[in-house]
Design a binder for these strands. Structure first.
Lengths: 208, 208
DNA sequence: TTGCAAATGAGAGTCTACTCTCAAAATATG
DNA sequence: CATATTTTGAGAGTAGACTCTCATTTGCAA
């Protein structure tokens, strides 16, 4: 409440070392989320209380809520998936489905093996527990809306164009269906299957 | 707790008139659900308490829970949509997308105008309020799974067949995308649009 | 070291979905 | 009307997500 601002520890310093305080915060946040996901996987989302999460992460329950506004936020991803970025960066003149295939491959290739394993496990957890599906719904719909916008822009059309809407819906539907199948068949190579499914869609979904 | 069963008012009677008691129960159930949906629409799902619903329906809160095990159940549909029945009844030898188009049309034609208006409004409510989307997720996924099984059976394949999975996913995706578009454009003739979208899918989703 | 600001812990408190119990009311049968 | 049975209302009780407050601790700068 004082305009003098006499004390700004990290006022736009943008140091390479973010300072102990910031690093500790990031570590705490990561620890809370990690323990939460582990407990969700082990004993279910609804059956896990915030108190248990706090205990496992060795913080106070109130601290959990300081980092994550709601229990659902513990599982929601906060950054837009790099897939959409890759798609945005792709040159025009390629069909929507082809573009999505390429962007998907690029995004996956850009991940380190650990990142890949992490995100696969997270996705898997989300798909396994229906309660988490519901929790992640807002994020998913937002991402699909973004996909629709990008595809529309690539074709120089309105996002509300029925044809764009149909293609986006079909792409999303095919991938979601694969996602659910993956839950029941964990050994599946999801990424290869995704590429194959999109290829099938691209060729008009013939029954061979 | 008595094996003599000395008193069974409606022990398999299966009368045309179900008796006052049963009729009253149905009326109460309908009233509760109607008031609940109205309140959800007017002030949101989370912001509506069961107590408010009970008051609006003029019953006790405990009565609400006697009729609906959870708050979510208030919005979930209990009978399988007649659309799936129509699809099951369709003769084989027609492509999956064509079959879905026909079944959809048949199911809609079989509805009375009031039923149609009712279900449209209910669908609309579900699509408008994200919390309801989440609540209805289990039902939706179950229906899509049923769709996948029917389509697989029609083609004499396994429901796990990737091609079947892709077609089912694409159909569902296209329809869900339409559903969301409808929310933003209430005047749209959803049924005609659905038919057009499926036709577009059937022809391989060309960008014309 | 000293003092400022931010992060934390502890704990009490609210709100609401959901459960349980029991007595009263309504409905069916004879 | 009398009696058996079901449904309801009233209300107390539980659990867990989320909020608020305040004293304590911890990182930071001079």
């Amino acid at each position: 409440m004082d305009a003098r601002a006499p004390y700004r520890p990290e006022c736009g310093v943008m140091n390479d070392r973010p300072g102990l305080r910031e690093r500790k915060k990031a570590k705490t946040r990561a620890a809370i989320r990690k323990e939460a996901l582990r407990l969700f996987r082990e004993q279910g989302y609804a059956a896990t209380t915030v108190e248990q999460i706090a205990e496992a992460a060795e913080v106070a329950p109130s601290t959990v809520f300081r980092y994550f506004a709601t229990k659902e936020d513990l599982v929601l991803v906060d950054q837009a998936p790099p897939f959409l970025e890759a798609l945005r960066a792709l040159p025009p003149g390629i069909g929507p489905v082809t573009a999505v295939r390429r962007a998907l491959r690029e995004a996956v290739d850009a991940q380190t093996p650990e990142e890949r394993a992490d995100s696969l496990e997270r996705e898997r957890l989300m798909a396994t527990v229906p309660e988490l599906w519901a929790a992640s719904l807002k994020g998913v719909t937002r991402e699909i809306a973004a996909l629709q916008e990008i595809l529309a822009a690539r074709e120089g059309r309105s996002p509300d164009d029925p044809q764009i809407r149909n293609i986006t819906g079909a792409i999303a539907g095919v991938l979601v269906a694969l996602w659910f199948a993956w839950v029941r068949t964990p050994d599946m190579d999801v990424l290869a299957e995704a590429d194959r499914a999109l290829a099938h869609l691209e060729s008009g979904l013939p029954l061979s």
